[in-house]
Amino acid sequence: MKQFTVTQQREKCIGCNACVEVYPEKWRMSQKDGKATLVRAINKKGFYSTTFHAHEWKAFNLAAQHCPVKIINISSKHD
């Protein structure tokens, strides 16, 4: 089954809330530092990522498109 990875360069987040608006199931605004947090993401040197399946692609892609600072990136991988 085709899998995708979504990555957020969290440090550069300006806390505009756009990703939460389009996909609240997977994005939360942190009450601690006011930046968006990707649910269940793994942090590698400031890049937070998690994998997802095709049915979520539309919602994650919308979040990536709406991000004003373009720090959300989607890539696909076959396994």
């Binding site: 806390g15 809330n17 605004m29 942190s30 009450q31 601690k32 530092d33 006011g34």
Partner: peptide, 9 residues
Amino acid sequence: LYDYDLRLM
């Protein structure tokens, strides 16, 4: 500022 910004502020 939004609600979630208040703590950082």
